[in-house]
């Protein structure tokens, strides 16, 4: 709709620019706060100092660069990856409930990580990520398989149901395997979902994947806008829908797989953020995708700060916090979608 309306478009673009600019500023600030805040509070100026002139002989600098930095970078990356993945899914499937966790993509990735943990006891970060990619494809494949088999295709509600059934199935199989191979404790980390204790070694390999996927996502963003108007419109406008869908799903799998391999299952980011963004900037995915990236990262960084503040010195898993934030939103959507 917004595309056809001139004044609306310029208004939306203005909003989008504001979100990206101020969002990035707030994101950087909250990342700095997140780094400063912890068992030992560190001055913001020291944080800045350690970034611009890193001095390995200082303990605080080491804490910042080697312990707190990877954590906050992981939170920002995972948040934006999941938000972009959610936005792409919602756009391509025209389904307001689509998101990595609801469609079983995250649970597929966790399942594959569990299997890999059980059979190869120790996993390199790259190995974990690879397992997560395969698993994400399995999860998505299963849910879409159900969609193709069922008579009326995947309605939003069926999608949510199929996703939760697949999640239940995969998680029960992986729990059973984890108990048998005695890796249940390692696995519980992936299920709780969190960025605590993350090292550069596990964030590092995911960074190039994120960059490539985000570039791809922005490249296909205008095509996704067309797809979000419906298959017929897209074909009518001469779009290669098959190609766009393939790239789109590849991006979703890459982003979700990389995110899960870092932080485990964190739900609802991919559901909530794109909806909020669409409300603010309309339906143009060239605007939605960058905005989602910024706000998704921001939300998870803030949630992670919250996770540490609720019950210090213990950490509350950020996945659980996201669920508590996301559920009211999901209920709102459920009331809207489930009604006539």
């Amino acid at each position: 709709m917004a595309l056809l309306n001139g004044t609306n478009t310029s208004r939306n673009r203005f909003f989008a620019i504001m979100i990206v600019t101020f969002g990035t500023i707030i994101l950087c600030l909250s990342m700095a706060v997140s780094i400063a805040f912890g068992a030992v509070n560190i001055n913001l100026s020291t944080v800045w100092e350690s970034v611009v002139s890193y001095d390995p002989s200082k303990t605080t600098h080491q804490i910042i660069i080697n312990l707190r930095m990877p954590r906050v970078v992981a939170a920002a990356l995972v948040g934006s990856a999941l938000a972009i993945a959610g936005a792409i899914m919602q756009g391509m499937t025209r389904n307001p409930l689509a998101s990595p966790s609801i469609m079983g993509v995250t649970s597929g990735a966790t399942f594959a990580i569990a299997m890999a943990l059980a059979f190869f006891t120790s996993l390199s970060p790259i190995g974990t990520m690879f397992a997560a990619f395969i698993g994400a494809s399995i999860g998505a494949g299963l849910v879409f398989g159900i969609g193709m088999l069922s008579r009326n295709g995947l309605t939003p509600v069926k999608l949510a149901l199929a996703g939760s059934a697949i999640t239940a199935l995969l998680s029960s199989i992986s729990s059973a395997i984890a108990i048998h191979f005695n890796v249940a404790k390692d696995l519980s980390f992936w299920y709780a979902g969190g960025v605590a204790g993350i090292q550069w070694e596990s964030v590092g390999p995911a960074i190039p994947v994120f960059i490539i996927s985000i570039i791809l996502a922005i490249m296909i963003s205008s095509s996704i806008t067309v797809l979000s108007m419906g298959e017929d419109v897209a074909i009518g406008l001469g779009q290669k829908t098959g190609l766009i869908r393939t790239i789109g799903f590849l991006v979703v799998l890459l982003l979700t797989g990389a995110a899960v391999s870092i932080s485990g299952t964190i739900g609802f980011v991919g559901l909530v953020i794109p909806h909020m963004i669409r409300f603010l900037v309309g339906t143009d995915y060239r605007l939605i995708i960058p905005c989602s990236a910024v706000l998704g990262g921001l939300l998870l960084v803030l949630a992670d700060i919250g996770a540490r503040m609720i019950n210090p010195p213990f950490e509350t898993p950020v996945g659980a916090i996201m669920a508590l934030i996301g559920v009211p939103f999901f209920l709102y959507l459920a009331r809207r979608e489930g009604g006539r």
Partner: peptide, 29 residues
Amino acid sequence: SGVTPIRLILVGIGINAAFSALIIILQLK
């Protein structure tokens, strides 16, 4: 429309997620 079956089950999935999250938070303490 009262309580439609579909809405009931969707809301149920949401409530399920919320309680599971609360359980995890309690459990880790």
